[in-house]
Design a protein around this nucleic acid. Structure first.
Length: 489
RNA sequence: GGUCUCGUGGCCGAGCGGUUAGGCACCGGUCUGCAAAACCGUCUACUCCGGUUCGAAUCCGGACGAGACCUCCA
């Protein structure tokens, strides 16, 4: 279809929508910050991954050859609000009295399962931090050699002041180094740093650390940001096309990634920085520390206390797709119920397509409709606009089914192909077809034939009894113009 | 306190200078033995106050409100 790439992407780096031009024509390198495996990812985490899955899917739809790298953080010391280096995985491991790797393995298994449930395409590579300690060390050595890092007592820090003389620290987040000084609340335990804004590249091992690696500076652990620099460089090169992640990673994580990449290789790692917005609960960001989160599995199984019924992964995905990736989204029972009905309507229309017969001409400009699908997604992956356009198609399809509109054979083929493609391949929504259970199909055929006979004889008691008993068994009978149809609830 | 984002009809949520977003709900209709479902139609909003403009939800200023980040976070 639309072969020319006419994609616009909002670049967090410039704060503007820019025409997307890949470094290598026809190819895209994309890096997205993945989960830290010290707990099960919650629904908010999933929204980010679902959004980047959408982006990945659309890039593929455009015929681009995408190398999508999403890391798995299975080691690393982050710095908490008190300025202390913390190994969050080790912390959980200690609590549960197991080894770090057991924690990582446990939650990775869950994460992989969630990816299947929510129909996320697998990234091209999912590298882990622990498998790239050597690369991280090499980056740190280069940063030191370039004069942007210093060693103190077995730890290595990034020298923000030295860096600021040649590069702009704060280019992504809009922060100014001078202002940061006054803004930052008083921190403890950072007497090793030369400057308050310096951050750890390598942290000397504590006696009770569960995971320790050798380095030129002694035994220790990598800092929180360096793994992404090491892995993105290794798999995508010094500079690639798109770097994504959650909005909350903008500072300090992505800012520091830029600093490390510039400090080591002299360039910003990515041309386009993309940030997905947060999932809110009652107007507040869903987060572990606030405790206002629910798990992606709970909502599918109907075991969260927030919702009184389960929702299918496709409905949740659809609900999320109705909001733009850069907007916050409040997931509520109301919005999910609305999404459920809308999704059914969309799916029904899709299933109606094979029953449509072609005419000489089309009463609608199908080409324009299909172009509107592309136009929506080309505008910074505007999925809500795409869905609105799809519903234009739904109206048309319904009219066709009732012989109130016409479509040519060529247009029907195009519409069918693109409808399936945009719903299935791009939005990643799986439309359930009628059951493939032959035994059930045959049984239902018999039952409905019996009911039809009863109805013809105006035996409403039998007819209604069949309908009600089936409903109780979870099968809904719908009486249409051309006889009854059924579906499993 | 600093930096930034946002305030759209009953709800969710696009649009970001002039045209109906869309979905859900409501209401009306078609269909129907009844019901459900399905389909069609209707409703018509931009926090407030100024300004720019022929024209503003959309741009500028201010007020009020909400949220994010400021070394835990997707």
């Amino acid at each position: 279809m639309s072969t020319a790439i006419d994609l616009t992407i909002y670049n967090s780096l410039t704060g503007e929508k820019e025409k997307f031009e890949p470094i290598h024509a026809g190819k895209v390198g994309m890096y997205v910050c993945g989960p830290t495996l010290y707990s099960e990812p919650h629904m908010g985490n999933m929204r980010t991954f679902i959004n980047f899955d959408l982006i990945y899917r659309y890039l593929l739809k455009l015929g681009l050859q995408v190398k999508y790298v999403r890391n798995i953080t299975d080691a690393g010391h982050i710095t908490n609000s008190a300025g202390e280096a913390v190994d969050s995985i080790g912390k959980v491991a200690k609590l549960e009295q197991v080894q770090s790797l057991e924690i990582v393995y446990k939650y990775n298994t869950k994460f992989q399962e969630l990816q299947r449930i929510y129909n996320l395409l697998s990234p091209t590579i999912e590298p882990t931090a622990t498998a790239h300690i050597q690369e991280q060390i090499e980056h740190i050595e280069q940063i030191i050699a370039n004069g942007f890092g210093y060693v103190v007592n077995g730890s290595v820090y990034f020298d923000v002041r030295a860096y600021s003389e040649q590069f702009e620290y704060g280019i992504l987040s809009g922060r100014k180094v001078d202002e940061l000084a006054e803004e930052t609340r008083a921190l403890h335990a950072q007497e090793e740093k030369r400057f308050f804004a310096d951050f750890a590249l390598w942290k000397k091992a504590n006696p009770d650390d569960m995971q320790i690696w050798r380095s030129p500076w002694g035994d220790g652990n990598p800092g929180w940001h360096i793994e992404c620099t090491a892995m993105s460089t290794k798999y995508l090169g010094a500079q690639f096309d798109i770097h994504g992640g959650g909005m909350d990673l903008k500072f300090p994580h992505h800012e520091d990634e830029i600093a490390q990449n510039c400090g080591s290789l002299g360039c910003n790692p990515a041309r386009y920085w993309m940030h997905a917005n947060m999932l809110n609960v009652n107007g507040q960001k869903m987060s572990k520390s606030l405790g206002n989160y629910f798990l992606p599995k709970e909502i599918v199984e109907g075991t969260t206390t927030i919702f009184d019924k389960p929702y299918s992964p496709a409905v949740i995905r659809f609900c999320m797709m109705q909001a733009h990736y850069r907007s916050t989204l409040d997931l509520s029972a109301d919005s999910l119920n609305a999404a459920e009905k809308g999704f059914t309507r969309l799916g029904d229309a899709l299933l109606l397509l094979p029953t449509i017969t072609a005419s000489e001409t089309s009463s609608m400009d199908v080409s324009a409709l299909v172009q509107s699908f592309y136009k929506a997604m080309n505008d910074d992956f505007n999925a809500p606009m795409l869905i609105a356009a799809l519903f234009e198609g739904v109206k048309y399809i319904n009219a066709l089914a009732e012989n109130k509109a016409t479509i040519s054979a060529t247009d029907l083929a195009v519409l069918t192909a693109e409808f399936h493609s945009f719903i299935g391949d791009v939005l990643g929504l799986h439309i359930a077809k009628a059951t493939s259970d032959d035994a059930l199909n045959a049984t239902m055929e018999l039952v409905l034939a019996m009911r039809k006979k009863a109805r013809e004889e105006k035996d409403w008691t039998t007819s209604d009894q069949i309908r009600d008993k089936l409903q109780a068994a979870g099968i809904v009978v719908k009486d249409g113009k051309d006889g009854a149809s059924w579906s499993v609830k």
